[in-house]
Every structure is written in C-alpha cells, then in structure tokens.
Design a binder for these strands. Structure first.
Length: 257
DNA sequence: ATGGCTCCATACTGGAGA
C-alpha cells in the first residue's frame, strides 16, 4: 500500500496540481493538509472523479485536513486531537484504511517565538504525544503522517544556523519530536535515507527550490507493527517545480501488507 | 533586521504561512 502526505496550501487553488499528481503518482491513500477551505467547499466531486473517496475536516481560510483513499472508503475514527475542547483549528483527522490506522496531522507553525502561537504549538505537541501513546498501547498498525512543522535534526535544514530561533527548529520543538519518536515510532523517511539530505518544503522566496534551500518537515511515523513492512519511500520533488504549485512537495511510503 | 512570495478573505489590503 502506497501512502502519501501532501500539504497542498489551498485545496481549491491547488486543484489542477493535486489532480495531476494523483494521476501520476497514484497513491492508495493521500493525506492532505492546509485545505484552506470551509467544510462545504471541499472539491469532493473532482476527487471522486479521480477515483478517491475522502473524509475531510475543513475550516474557513486556514488549516483543514483530509484523507483520500482509492482502496476503500476511509473509516473515520476521529476528526480532532483529544485534550482541548477550546482548540477549534482543523488540524487532525484519523481513519482506518485496509486495517491500518492513519492519522493525518497539521502541527501548528508556532511563529513568532516566543509568544502565544509558540505556546499553542508546544501544547499541541503534548496532546499529540498523549494520543500517540494511546495508539501505541493498542498494538495495531498505525501511521502518523503530515506536516509536523519540525526539522528533527540539522541534517533536515539547508542552513541550520539561520533557523535556531525559529519555531520550526527551536530545541523545545526538536525535543518534543524526539520524545514522540522515542515512544517507539519509526521516522520512515529518515530510516530509508540515513545521513542523506531529504527535503519536503522549499519556500516561495528567493528561488529556494532552484537553490535546493529546503526543509524536511513532512514526516511519516510508523508504529512497531509496521516497521518491518516498510518497503520504500521518497519525495515527489518534481511537483514542487510545477506551475501554481504548493511550497511543499508530496512525500510517500510503501508498506507491504 | 527586513523582506522576499503565495494563499485566502471580501479586496484594492491584511493575516498567515515557514
């Protein structure tokens, strides 16, 4: 089964790119973030015509997450991260597909740091850790994927010294990611490419993509039940070079079930 | 230190992103 994650940065503005990518890359499951569309403006019919059934959690202007599947309808398990009834951001949706639990997440950016947005990010991370631990205790196949807004190590950022005080690279945030992984998760892309520079995001400024000034912030975490079933993975980097494209590229893995 | 670019809203400008 091929599972992908893609921060589309606007699902409607990105629709031609999204449909072309689905057609070319043919993931069985695609987790989308940053829909930037209210619930009723999700392009359900276009996605269906492309061969995918979808569940989504929209929000006006910001955030928004979706899970698409062409191997059976995603069976929704939840559409918010537990632990804070006041948190109204659409940043988490979870479904079962083919016996695998798939959590699709859009972790807060957290800038500027320090400040309330950074505090929100750290709080969200703690709630994710709690929920992830609960999932691990079930001893079932789980994939937690999406835009984590964290470069886990210096290898994951083109110029680490420029990012040390950024909310994506602060030690508090790297520590939170490390602590999450240490629960027993496998960082799939890093496992497949140890020691290599692998980027999933290039910002729109100053020809970052042309200079390969990138970040690795979109991740797949695998529960122990899936660790040995990981077959391959990669970044559909060329998509970042298309017209009217997102600042993220799609990332994918294949697991043998 | 700032701004460079692109998205969305209800728009001729501002907030947010990373």
């Amino acid at each position: 089964m091929k599972i992908a994650t893609y921060n589309v940065n606007g699902v409607n503005g990105r629709l031609p790119v999204l449909l072309r990518w689905l057609e070319e890359s043919k993931p069985d499951v695609a987790c989308l973030q940053e829909l930037k569309a209210p619930q009723e403006k999700f392009p359900e019919q276009a996605i269906k015509d492309a061969g995918y059934e979808a569940i989504w959690h929209g929000q006006k202007s910001w955030n928004g997450v979706a899970i698409l599947s062409r191997v059976g309808a995603p069976k929704e398990l939840r559409r918010e991260l537990p632990g804070d009834a006041e948190d109204l951001h659409s940043r988490y949706i979870e479904a079962e597909v083919n016996g695998v639990v798939i959590g699709c997440l859009y972790l807060p950016n957290g800038n500027p740091c320090p400040g309330p947005k950074f505090d929100y990010k750290l709080g969200w991370f703690e709630r994710l850790q709690l929920h992830a631990k609960m999932l691990l205790e079930q001893k079932i196949p789980v994939i937690l994927t999406g835009d984590y807004n964290v470069m886990p190590t210096e290898l994951d950022v083109y110029k680490p010294e420029k990012w040390v005080n950024d909310a994506l690279f602060r030690t508090e945030v790297r520590d939170a990611f490390e602590k999450l992984v240490a629960q027993g998760w496998t960082d799939a892309i890093r496992t497949l490419y140890p020691g290599e520079k692998v980027y999933t995001f290039w910002d729109y400024f100053r020809d970052a993509y042309g200079r390969n000034a990138g970040l690795r912030i979109d991740h797949f975490l695998l529960s122990p039940e899936l660790k040995d079933k990981l077959k391959s993975g990669g970044v559909d980097k060329e998509v970042r070079g298309w017209e009217k494209t997102s600042d993220h590229a799609p990332v994918w893995i294949e697991i043998g079930l």
